[in-house]
């Protein structure tokens, strides 16, 4: 049963991911990426990581919607009605992409994972959340705090880059 769901949602994620680069409508492209990520969230649920799955489904909905508005803003042909080709070096990219899939899959298939495994049973979902909380605010607290600081830094940097310089200051800087 678990195998079926992993396969199903994995396949859905891959199909939607392919659709991202196959359509020329930017809205469809962004929504395809959104549903690819949602399928991944469902895949996490199938892998019994309930908290991560729900978190993925929640975060990606907003994230990809914001992506959609930027794509519509910045593309020359957001509706995809003009049929513009927005790609280059297709052959090279195709070869690189397929090569990467083959290589990584081969590594995955030929590694002896059993020797690395320590436990095959996942805890119940509420147990998991408790453990994750203890991990986040216990042993891994420093890492977690670093992530928080990184977010703050990125917020400030992003605002500084994106905000338009007011006209009266612009003459000083140039």
């Amino acid at each position: 049963m678990q195998t079926f769901f992993i396969g199903f949602f994995g396949l859905a994620a891959i199909v939607f991911a392919v659709a991202v680069f196959r359509t020329s409508s930017m809205m469809r492209s962004a929504l395809a990426l959104l549903f690819s990520q949602t399928a991944l969230g469902a895949l996490f649920l199938a892998l019994q990581a309930e908290f991560l799955g729900v978190l993925q489904i929640m975060m990606m909905a907003t994230e990809m919607s914001i992506m959609a508005i930027f794509m519509v803003m910045f593309m020359m042909d957001p509706g995809g009605l003009g049929g513009m080709d927005m790609s280059h070096q297709k052959r090279l990219s195709m070869i690189a992409g397929l090569g990467a899939v083959m290589l990584v899959s081969a590594i995955a298939a030929y590694t002896r994972w059993q020797e690395l495994a320590s436990l095959s049973q996942a805890a119940a979902a509420d147990e998991q959340i408790r453990h994750l909380g203890r991990e986040l605010l216990g042993r891994s607290m420093l890492v977690f705090e670093t992530a928080g600081i990184t977010i703050l830094t990125a917020m400030i940097a992003t605002t500084a880059v994106a905000v338009k310089v007011p006209a009266e200051n612009a003459s000083h800087e140039s």
């Binding site: 992993i6 994995g10 396949l11 994620a13 891959i14 991911a17 392919v18 991202v20 680069f21 690819s36 991944l40 895949l43 992409g97 397929l98 990467a100 899939v101 990584v104 899959s105 995955a108």
Partner: peptide
């Protein structure tokens, strides 16, 4: 393999 395919795409 799902992860690998997403990486390749």
């Amino acid at each position: 393999i799902t992860g690998a395919a997403l990486f390749g795409i």
